[in-house]
Each structure stands twice: as structure tokens, then as C-alpha cells.
Amino acid sequence: MAAGTDTLHDSYQWQTRTNRLGFWLFFLSEVFIFGGLLVARFFLWGGTRPDLPQIPPLLLTVALLLSSFFMFRAEMAIATDDRKTFTRSLLLTAVLGSIFFLGVMFVEWGFTVENGQLVLGNHIKPTDGVYGAVFYGMTGLHALHVISGVIGILLVWNLGRKGHFSAERHWGVEATAIYWHYVDLVWVFFYPALYLIGTAVGHGH
């Protein structure tokens, strides 16, 4: 079989349009796994929620929402070839995203030493019945997406620093930005479902 080229489908513009469609379909698919977790939350917790400290998650939420603003700024900057704002805003986004991720890891989950053994669970443990299970399930899957997003942003930042991307050709930036906004949007649904909706139920000890 001889090699060849497909002139109709090899152009950057055609590929970007196709990539965009594929990316949105990927999000549609992801809606179902996040939606499934939300269904699990309402199925298992009903009108209750675990009584957890409110301030740390609120601050983390602010950090994540702010990061979306800087991601948007980065995308707008590269669209006008403002490379300095572009790389700076990307870095800020990554820092804010990391703050969120580390906050979930070390404040919301927390690691404590019990009987000389490192265990998960500052406020709530994975083994705390359905409250622990759903809490760690939802924050865990979301955190996995956040850290993938942070890695993606850092990769794009690294490429941008080396002079890749331009006002006309920055699908990589656009994709990372959409992904980041999407992860942010998921949290907009998860945060109230975990911390705000329902009657607080204490540990009862």
C-alpha cells in the first residue's frame, strides 16, 4: 500500500474544527460519570449532608473559580499575541488549581496518624459509611480531573514559554482552557451537593 495525503482533511482549520467537536463529545460523555456520582449522592444522602467545616471548602472554591478567570485571560492573550500575559496567566491558573488540589488533599481529606499508622481522614474518613464513601468518591474523581488539568496547563505553559502557539494557531491552549472551565463547572455542581444542600448530620459521638 502506498502512502498518500488526504488534502481534504489535513488542514489545520479542518482538524481544529473536528477536534473541537470531539472534545465537546468527550465532555458530554464525562457528564454521565459526574452525573452518576451526583445521583449516588442524592440516592444515598437524600436530604442530609455530613457536618463538615465550611470555611476551607469555601476558600478552595474561590481559588478554583478565580483560576478559571485567569485561564480565560490566558486564552484571550494568546488570541491577540500578548505572550507575556499569556504565560503569566497560565502560571497563575496552575498555581490556583494546585492550591485547590492540595487543599482537597491535605485539608479536606487530611492525613492523620492513628495508632502509629498513617490514615486518610482529617474530618471524615472513607470508611465513614455512605457519608465517607460519597464524599471521597466525588472529591476524589474531581481532584483527579483537577490534577490532570494542572498538568495540562503546565505543559501548555512550557510550550508557550518556548514560543509555540500563535494568535491563529492555538488549539492546544483552547482545549486546555475548555477542559479547565469544564472541571470548574463540575465543582459548581459538586460543591453545593457536598457542603450546602441538606440537613447537616454530625458524627454523633
Binding site: L44, P50, G204
Partner: peptide
């Protein structure tokens, strides 16, 4: 899978004591 390795009781009703409303135990379905 997570219930098996992390003890996250999504589907674990909680043994002989069924779902106690005021405690973080059991309640899986």
C-alpha cells in the same frame, strides 16, 4: 472496587445495625 480496597461503603448497608440517621455509619444501598 473502592468499597473493596478502601472500605468506602457505597453499597454496604452497615451490618446488623441498619443506617443510623445521626451517625456516619452504614447507609449503603
Amino acid at each position: 472496587l473502592m468499597q473493596r480496597i478502601m472500605g468506602m461503603g457505597f453499597f454496604d448497608p452497615g451490618g446488623p445495625v441498619w443506617y443510623e440517621v445521626d451517625k456516619w455509619v452504614g447507609g449503603g444501598n
